[in-house]
Design a protein around this nucleic acid. Structure first.
Lengths: 411, 411
DNA sequence: TCACGTTTGTTAGTAAAGCTTACGAACAAA
DNA sequence: TTTGTTCGTAAGCTTTACTAACAAACGTGA
């Protein structure tokens, strides 16, 4: 087979020369890649960093796979038995791991000593500030099980008053447990930066509230603060096989949390997931509080849906189908917004969180249908849309995952 | 200030008990986080990994900041002078770094020996398969400068014929340089997985073509293959300050490449960025080749735009404004698709690649306006939409970045 | 019963990596 | 000429994870 490859040469000085077949291809001058970019804070890696990475790896293996021998961990991680023993000794000394005695089942060879994360050794405080009328809190164990709860009414509270309520809630939860607390995780509405500063949370009247550092100073414990939807998706990720995940949280507002390639997405302005005020479709829609028409929140927020459903005549013969029509239209709107996101990110799983009686029927089905109609079937064949299984504790447990992940490198 | 925190206790066995104020909070049973999830392939970290990371860090520092002394690199990386000297010695032995002699300017102390990446020591082969009528190729230097070019007509070629054309193109480029080649980068249309298998590229009649391994076997050089738009965004990222970046590539089709948190987004089905067949708006639109109405590609692809513009009467008094109306409508449609993506990811920079005469005027302005109208101003205040500065070489240079990044950990 | 193989966890020693400390070389300024 | 500064390198130390070897404890089969 003969092919006709045409070549043009560019001399090192930049002046184009021609060799063989002349070919005039328009091309930009070849500037070097910019050198203006600041050095990325990639940072050096020291031996001790490797050590802490491997430590987390051992912990993660125990955490997800349960009780096993040091030799099992060695096989699971690829580290040698010697190294695993060494790391485990550290973890035992810190009280994070315990020996459980010898394995029972009969096998040849020296019987194995089982070890596991001491799941009762620490507690985590989880706080959910996303509800409209109350702040929720819980003491959570290392497995995500909720040990005790507390809540405080917050209607009308704002600014410093609201901060004081959070402090009281945490104080009350800390008082309710004698077991050491690993840290405090907070899911807050609004825009929260990576330092745990709530840049803006209109509902709470917060603007640049340094919640993380203030709680840390108050309680002398590690504190992590993030947006409520971003926190919620962590809980879902802990219970999911997927490393790409979008969670849509429908409540008084509508927000989303996003994990891509196993990592939470923050956004350049720390506002990733803020899709509540993106306009849906090209045919108008209900007026939104933000002034625009047809924002997703104006279609989908719980108050809007319940108000619409309340207008229905419950005794009318077609009440059920009228209800479904309202919910289906909301679902369709959600699908319209999600389609470009699902397409651009090639997402395989989208999760809904919110009142199941609203989301889990006609609304869900309409969203699925709309997504299928508006994206390319071939690329998104295995897309799943489902309700969360975490129910109303999703933010509390996500907050626990955040602490677990931040303090132990486990999730 | 007295606050009324209410508590409910859950016994360790799971049965709810009440202490103090009784409070009935509905909550799901507290199942542990799933243990079903397979162990993530995080992998152990050995000392040698740390070493190669630090090696890349030194190389990256030299690459982006240019010629400097070992002591400068030490200050820039945080590594000690000793370690830097050691790493640099390795790099010099491999021919990647050269000493340039002593620094000229007069300063107290022993004069510094300048070192830099030997930017002329290696070449990279970049291949762009995304054009409709021809395959493009280039020899690229380590700075991204194009040294020589080649192209081959590919109209009608498909399947194995097309593969043979690519091989010929690479062979020709390799023959044109005597300088050692670091590797081969290929930007292909369609869906390409992480192993460089082109899962599906309808235009080329490709289905599960193992392009990477075949080229690697043929030329005994490192080969990287990825989707053309995903490759293009690498070039843009190399020249941008942003670590979150969306590039929309408008040509015979419409595709996107996405970088989030400095990492390319691949997608669960390796189809991230495939937004060409997402439906725009809720008011129908032109019939698309895929069968749906109003796909982005049906609005925005170059053939569609040129066809529409060709229908205009160029001598009519309002020809210019009619042209702008057509382009503005296309831009508006692009904005409608991008708004949910920009909102969900809180993107700070969106880049357009394609024919500037179509994209860079009314279309660009309409997209910006639409984005502003449909997203929340507060969160996306500093969003920028701009044309690429890489012109038609964007895929070729992106392919070079891919090789650079894959082989040297530099970008 | 008893030698043998198998598995576990530990001890001892080794290789790799980056650190601190120390030092000679080379220059500017006083 | 003296002083202070900066650069690059040498030597030795610490940390880390590795390999090799081994004792303990168990099942198996002659």
């Amino acid at each position: 087979m003969t092919t006709d490859v045409q070549r043009s040469q560019v001399s090192e000085t930049g002046a184009p020369t021609t060799g063989g077949d002349v070919l005039t291809v328009p091309f930009a001058d070849a500037p070097i890649f910019t050198r203006a970019r600041a050095l990325r804070p990639t940072g050096k890696v020291l031996p001790e960093h490797a050590r802490s990475h491997n430590r987390s790896l051992v912990l993660q293996t125990l955490y997800t796979s349960g009780a096993q021998s040091r030799a099992d961990v060695s096989r699971g991680t690829g580290l040698t038995r010697v190294t695993v023993s060494d790391l485990v000794a550290d973890l035992i000394a810190e009280g994070l791991v315990v020996e459980l005695g010898q394995r029972e089942d009969a096998r040849p060879g020296k019987p194995a000593t089982l070890i596991d994360v001491d799941r009762g050794a620490f507690r985590i405080i989880g706080i959910d500030l996303s509800e409209h009328q109350r702040f929720l809190g819980a003491v959570v164990d290392l497995d995500g099980g909720i040990v005790s709860r507390a809540e405080v009414a917050c209607a009308g509270a704002s600014g410093e008053n609201a901060v004081a309520l959070v402090v009281e809630l945490v104080r009350s939860l800390l008082a309710s447990t004698t077991i050491p607390v690993l840290g405090i995780g907070v899911g807050s509405p609004g825009v929260v930066d990576t330092l745990g500063v709530v840049r803006s949370a209109p509902n709470l009247g917060w603007r640049d509230i340094e919640l993380q550092s203030r709680l840390q100073a108050e309680f002398a414990l590690p504190v992590h603060v993030a947006n409520d939807a971003n926190v919620a998706v962590l809980a879902e990720h802990g219970a999911s096989l997927q490393d790409d995940l979008l969670l849509v949280k429908v409540g008084h507002g509508v927000g989303a949390g996003l994990i891509i390639g196993g990592r939470p997405v923050i956004g350049g302005g720390f506002a990733a997931g803020e899709i509540g005020h993106v306009v849906v479709g090209t045919d108008g829609g209900p007026r939104c509080a933000c002034g625009k028409d047809g924002c997703l929140e104006a279609w989908l927020a719980v108050p809007r849906l319940t108000a619409q459903l309340a207008e229905l005549d419950g005794d009318a013969p077609d009440a059920a189908s009228a209800r479904d029509r309202i919910l289906a239209e909301a679902g369709r709107r959600l699908g319209i917004i999600l389609a470009p996101v699902v397409g651009a990110l090639n997402l395989s799983e989208v999760v809904l969180s919110g009142p199941a009686e609203l989301l889990d029927g006609a609304l869900h089905d309409a969203t699925v249908d709309t997504l299928r109609m508006r994206t390319m079937a071939e690329h998104n064949r295995d897309l799943r849309l489902r309700m969360t299984e975490q129910a109303e504790d999703i933010v509390l447990r996500g907050a626990a995952v955040m602490v677990l992940s931040g303090q132990l490198g486990v999730s």
